[in-house]
Design a protein around this nucleic acid. Structure first.
Length: 655
DNA sequence: GAGTTTGAAACT
DNA sequence: CAGTTTCAAACTC
């Protein structure tokens, strides 16, 4: 019967269609209020939800929201319809309000969904997605939604993910003291987006909740309100991702970090620095810096606040250790009396070469030209810089600049000199003399200094040149590029002979230090003592040694290296005593982490020139001991791993 | 302390 | 990626 022409004809005349499209406005509100919760929670349905809210009944008629063409048509249609229905002002107002609200919600939805759920391991990298969504205007929502929908679909795979996220968000928010604030956020959202609702009495309910807490709100507020609340919360969560909201973002990052070692807290070094600087206890000084570097590895995985706590804790621990195991030298004590900055000052003045401050005039201390900035620390009084922006006051600028630079070169803030803990040690062996264990990250490019002056970063860092260096006429006392293994003594002699009369005093000093190191012993003077605590912290490093840094375990990068690099750079320091040296090395390596897991994780120097390890791959003189890379040399990985195990425990206490 | 040299960093 | 410029430390006087 249905196939009969008559039926078809009747069918074609059926008023059903018109009825379907006409009622949109009216249905909108009803649908709006009756939309099933599941729609809101399901990521897949998010889009359809959007459309259902936004395009009203179209959702029912066209079940495939993914069709962009259709969506656009719907959009235009809906726009047309709105004015048509304009007669009913009340309805229109509501409709508009709902529309607006819907758009906001959907945006929020997406904003939340993308960053929080799409890639939880990279929260820090997604902070801007939400902003964009929120800025979307009502008119553009159709397109915007479609886009977002696409994005969401592309990003979201798991059905329950949003709900999970929501749960996580709730936990975050409600567990935090900011719950009320989150709710406020929600209220604001409502206020700005749905005045009509307030008029309708919903306001009353929500207002009640404002003073009350979410549990009640959940009960009293209609689903939509609750939904909004959640969105508001989640949104807040997103907001935390934005710079400035460190606390929560760090929490998020924590989760992210836990799931991915790749999570890098950009500029953590600066943060830490700031923390350290602000640290009430002056004792923190350099020692703390190191503790920091150690902590960072672990601490990165926590919120900044948590990190602060851990720092404090570590600080105390270190202090204790230092007091117990390591006699604090007078100089150190002095330092301890002053703030970290002052400490530095003293070092500078006292040690002369050890920790100089910058003297930037044009870079505003926001470029790597600036030693402070490059080291990841703020400039301090002793600096003679002009128009300095590298100060806590300009934290934002500093961080932004830092990010920028890091984006250009992820290793920019990594320690320039990568030290291989092992190397130095093969005491007795020729290997010990070979400086090859440590290498400059990128290698130098000296043309005139013959790598015999501090102009040369390798020399400055107290390491030999490697194949990665493009230096000319390399005579680096710590190891020549050509691989001519250099006995430091011989080298010294050679140098003396050759003459560089001028070079002298300082370089000799360095050489001497080296020799001393090789000889083993003692060591004194240099400011290094400051780091002793570190030794204490990492006992193994001092005693046995060279444990390969727990890097791999620690994972992530931190700019901890920053701290190290600053000190390591100076030959006198870095070269100082074997013991200290070891600790340094360990630290240094740890610091290297910021960079990279590459360095650390890959036992194989596949890392391009950039990789410090890579450099060492084939230092000529190393051949014997090594199979190539230092890492390889380092016991071929296996040993490395074993050694690293012990190191962890030590770090653990630091947290 | 001023001026020069140097090579990394930044820019083109 | 190479060449050039800018920059600040290292060095010299």
């Amino acid at each position: 019967m249905q196939d009969s022409p008559v039926f078809n004809y009747i069918n074609s005349l059926s008023p059903i269609r018109p009825v379907r499209s006409i009622p949109n406005p009216n249905q909108f509100s009803s649908l709006n209020f009756t939309s099933p919760p599941s729609v809101f929670t399901s990521p897949h349905l998010t889009s359809s939800h959007k459309e259902s809210r936004f395009f009203k009944t179209h959702n029912s008629s066209s079940s495939d929201p993914t069709n962009s063409v259709e969506s656009q048509e719907d959009e235009s249609t809906s726009h047309e319809e709105v004015p048509a229905e304009g007669e009913d002002t009340k309805g229109l107002n509501i409709d508009d309000c709902m529309r607006e609200e819907a758009s906001v919600e959907t945006n929020l939805d997406d904003s939340v969904a993308s960053p929080c759920g799409g890639d939880t391991t990279d929260l820090s990298l997604v902070p801007y997605a939400p902003t964009r969504g929120e800025d979307g205007s009502c008119e553009d929502n159709g397109m915007e939604l479609q886009k977002m929908h696409d994005n969401v679909q592309g990003k979201t795979e798991t059905p329950d993910w949003e709900s999970l996220i929501a749960d996580a968000s709730e936990l975050l928010i409600f567990d935090s003291p900011d719950a009320s604030e989150a709710f406020r956020c929600f209220m604001m959202q409502r206020a700005s987006n749905s005045e009509a609702r307030f008029r309708n009495g919903v306001e009353k309910q929500t207002m009640q909740h404002d003073s009350n807490k979410e549990p009640e709100s959940a009960n009293a507020i209609p689903y939509e309100a609750v939904s909004l609340l959640h969105r508001g919360i989640r949104r807040r969560c997103l907001d935390f991702e934005m710079p400035g909201n460190k606390q929560t973002s760090s929490e998020n990052n924590t989760a992210a970090c836990e799931s991915s070692s790749r999570c890098v807290v950009p500029s953590i070094g600066l943060h830490l620095n700031a923390i350290l600087m602000s640290s009430k206890d002056c004792k923190t000084n350099v020692t703390q810096d190191y503790s920091c570097s150690a902590n960072i590895q672990v601490g990165l995985q926590r919120s900044i606040s948590t990190l602060q706590d851990s720092l404090d804790q570590t600080e105390n621990e270190i202090r204790e250790d230092a007091d117990q195991d390591v006699p604090v030298e007078p100089a150190l004590q002095e330092l301890n009396l002053s703030s970290p900055k002052k400490k530095r000052v003293k070092l500078d003045s006292g040690e002369g070469e050890s920790c100089k401050r910058c003297n930037c005039k044009k870079s505003k201390c926001l470029k790597l030209y600036c030693e402070c900035f490059a080291a990841g620390v703020y400039c301090i009084e002793p600096c003679s810089c002009i128009d300095c922006f590298n100060k806590p006051i300009h934290e934002d600028v500093v961080l932004a600049t830092r990010k920028q630079i890091e984006s250009r070169n992820p290793l920019a803030f990594a320690p320039k000199v990568i030290r291989n803990s092992d190397s130095v040690q093969e005491t007795g062996d020729d290997a010990s003399k070979t400086p090859a264990s440590a290498r400059h990250k990128r290698g130098c490019n000296c043309k005139k200094s013959n790598c015999l002056k501090k102009y040369c970063e390798c020399y400055q860092g107290g390491v030999g040149c490697s194949i990665n260096c493009r230096c000319e006429g390399c005579k680096n006392a710590f190891g020549r590029k050509d691989g001519s293994s250099i006995d430091m003594e011989a080298e010294q002699e050679e140098e003396n002979e050759t003459s560089e009369k001028s070079r002298t005093a300082k370089s000799q000093q360095n050489t001497e230090v080296l020799m001393r190191k090789d000889m083993s012993s003692a060591l004194p003077t240099t400011p290094t003592p400051i780091y002793r605590p570190e030794l204490v912290q990492l006992p193994f490093s001092s005693s046995k040694n060279r444990m390969p840094p727990p890097q791999s375990l620690l994972g992530g990068g931190s700019s901890s290296g920053i701290f190290n690099s600053q000190y390591l750079r100076k030959p006198d320091i870095s070269l100082s005593q074997s013991r200290i040296e070891k600790s340094f090395e360990t630290v240094a390596v740890d610091g290297a982490e910021q960079m990279p897991e590459i360095l650390i994780h890959s036992p194989i120097p596949n890392i391009k020139s950039v990789s410090p390890n890579g450099k060492r791959v084939s230092p000529p003189h190393m051949e014997s001991s090594s199979s190539g890379s230092i890492l390889g040399r380092r016991n071929g990985g296996r040993k490395l791993i074993l050694q690293s195990i012990p190191s962890f425990p030590s770090l653990t206490p630091q947290h």
